[in-house]
Design a protein around this nucleic acid. Structure first.
Length: 400
DNA sequence: CGAGATTCATGTGAAGTATACCTTTAGGCTTAA
DNA sequence: AAGCCTAAAGGTATACTTCACATGAATCTCGTA
C-alpha cells in the first residue's frame, strides 16, 4: 500500500476515540472518583488564602498513580477560579522536583520558582543566596499569596538534603507583603521519618494520605474516563476489567491503567481494527514499558549510556551470574578506548550506577562478599527483549 | 570447634579541580555639543 | 564630556577527580576442649 493510499484510508476511517485528550496524563477531569474526602481536606487547608491569610503547609503522601497530583491540581483550579473572580492575588506554582536539570538542586529549584514570576535566572554563575534575594525581591514587589507545590519532593531531599525546605518555610518570617504556603507531595511513605524534626513539623502542619486504589475503584475510574474519551462499543468485553486487574497488581496505579487503555486503543486504531481486544492490551503493556525505558536511555549523557551498554554486554555473557562494579568498570574502560571517550574514574562510575538504580533502569544492591570484598550486585530489571532494544539503540548511538 | 582478627574490593565522604557561565569594572572608542 | 562597547577580573554552580578512610562477611588463626 502506498503512503498516499494509507493516508486516504486513514482520513476516511473513523477514529475509535471520542475525545482523546481525556485519556492523556495532562487531562484534569471535572470529577475525581473516590477522592472526595481528600479534595475537601485540601480545599479546607487552602481556603484561608482566599482571605489573604497564609494557609497551613500541607504534606501529602501516597503511591504513584493514587491521584495525588491530579486531586491537588483540580482543587487548585477551582480555587484559582474563585480567586480570579474575586480579584484575590493568589498564585499557584507547580514544580516537579524530579526533572533533571530543572529543579534537582537548591539553586535550580529557587531559580525555577523565580522564573514563574517572569524573572530569568542564569543557569549558573550566581551565588545561591543571591538567587534567594532575587526571589524575595520578586515576590515582595506585590502583595500576594503564593502556594508552592513541590511534587516528588522526596527525590529532591534525597539528593540535596532537607535544608531547602527549611529555608523555604522560614522565608515567611522575612516576608512583609506576600505569604508563602507549601504543599509537598511524596511517593515515598517513609520519607517524612528521615527529615529533620524541625523541617518535618513545619512542612507537615497538615498531613494527608492518599490510599492506593483497589481493583474495583480502578475499574470505576476506567469506565468513567473511557466513556468520556472512547466511542461506544469499541472496548471488547472484559478488556477494561483486565486493564484494572493489571493496574491493581501494581499497587493500584491509576495513571498506568489509563495509559494502558489509551495505548491499547491507539494500537487497535493503527491496525485498523474496530475493537480493542485483550491482545492489544498485552501489546500496550509491552509498548509502554519499552517507550518509557528507551526515552530514558536516550536522554542520558554519553558516559551514562556507555556504562549502561557495558552492563548489558556483561549481563548477556553471563546470564545467571551476578555482575559487580569491578567487572563493569574494567570493560567500560576498554570500551572507552574504542569509542574515544575519556574514561571516568571508578568513583564516578560508582555514583552513576547508583543513579541508574534510583531511576529504576537497573537494580543495584550493595553486598559484601566477605573475604572477596564489598561491591554492588547489579541486575537489569527490564525484560529480555526490551534489553535487546536498548542494546541496539545504544549500538547505533556509538557507531554513528 | 568457635571466637576473634584479618582481608579484600569497593563503597563513601570530603576536599580539590576544570569548565562554563555570571556580574562588575575599567578602559577605549565614538559621538555630540 | 557623555555614552556605549569590550575585555579582563573576580565570583559561583556543577560535574568530575583525588585522596583517604569505612565496611562487613568469608576466611584465617589460634586457643581450648
Amino acid at each position: 500500500m502506498s503512503i498516499n493510499n494509507f493516508l486516504e484510508a486513514f482520513i476516511k476511517r473513523e477514529s475509535l476515540f471520542k475525545n482523546k485528550a481525556a485519556l492523556q496524563s495532562s487531562y484534569i477531569p471535572e470529577e475525581i472518583p473516590h477522592r472526595e474526602e481528600q479534595m475537601t481536606l485540601i480545599a479546607k487547608v487552602l481556603a484561608p488564602c482566599l482571605r489573604m491569610e497564609r494557609p497551613s503547609n500541607l504534606f501529602i503522601y501516597g503511591k504513584t498513580g493514587s491521584g495525588k497530583t491530579l486531586t491537588v491540581q483540580n482543587t487548585i483550579k477551582q480555587i484559582e477560579l474563585i480567586a480570579k473572580r474575586e480579584q484575590i492575588p493568589v498564585k499557584f506554582i507547580y514544580i516537579n522536583c524530579k526533572l533533571k536539570k530543572v529543579a534537582d538542586t537548591e539553586y535550580r529549584l529557587i531559580a525555577e520558582i523565580t522564573r514563574f514570576f517572569g524573572r530569568e535566572i542564569p543557569p549558573t554563575g550566581l551565588p545561591t543566596d543571591e538567587v534567594y534575594k532575587i526571589f524575595y525581591r520578586t515576590i515582595e514587589r506585590e502583595n500576594q499569596i503564593i502556594i508552592l507545590i513541590l511534587d516528588e519532593i522526596d527525590q529532591l531531599v534525597k539528593k540535596v538534603g532537607d535544608e531547602i525546605i527549611y529555608n523555604l518555610t522560614r522565608i515567611n518570617t522575612e516576608l512583609k507583603n506576600s505569604k508563602l504556603g507549601i504543599i509537598g507531595i511524596s511517593n515515598d511513605v517513609m520519607f517524612a521519618d528521615n527529615l529533620d524534626p524541625r523541617v518535618k513539623s513545619s512542612l507537615s502542619e497538615e498531613e494527608l494520605v492518599f490510599p492506593s486504589y483497589n481493583a474495583i475503584q480502578i475499574q470505576d475510574i476506567l469506565k468513567k474516563r473511557s466513556s468520556e474519551s472512547i466511542k461506544e462499543g469499541v472496548m471488547e468485553e472484559g478488556v477494561i476489567a483486565k486493564c484494572a486487574a493489571y493496574a491493581a497488581r501494581e499497587h493500584g496505579d491509576a495513571r498506568r491503567a489509563l495509559e494502558l487503555l489509551r495505548v491499547a486503543v491507539e494500537l487497535a486504531e493503527r491496525k485498523t481494527l474496530q475493537h480493542v481486544t485483550l491482545k492489544e492490551l498485552d501489546e500496550a503493556e509491552d509498548k509502554i514499558e519499552k517507550d518509557r525505558v528507551l526515552d530514558m536511555v536516550v536522554a542520558q549523557p554519553r558516559q551514562f549510556q556507555l556504562i549502561l551498554y557495558t552492563i548489558i554486554l556483561i549481563s548477556e555473557k553471563s546470564k545467571t551470574e551476578s555482575l559487580f562494579t569491578g567487572d563493569v568498570y574494567d570493560l567500560y574502560k576498554t570500551l572507552c578506548g574504542k569509542t574515544n571517550l575519556r574514561p571516568l574514574t571508578q568513583r564516578r562510575v560508582s555514583d552513576v550506577i547508583g543513579e541508574f538504580d534510583i531511576s529504576g533502569i537497573i537494580n543495584a544492591r550493595v553486598i559484601s562478599k566477605g573475604r572477596y570484598g564489598r561491591t554492588r550486585e547489579i541486575k537489569l530489571v527490564t525484560g529480555e527483549h526490551i534489553t535487546a532494544k536498548i542494546k541496539t539503540l545504544l549500538e547505533n548511538i556509538f557507531n554513528a
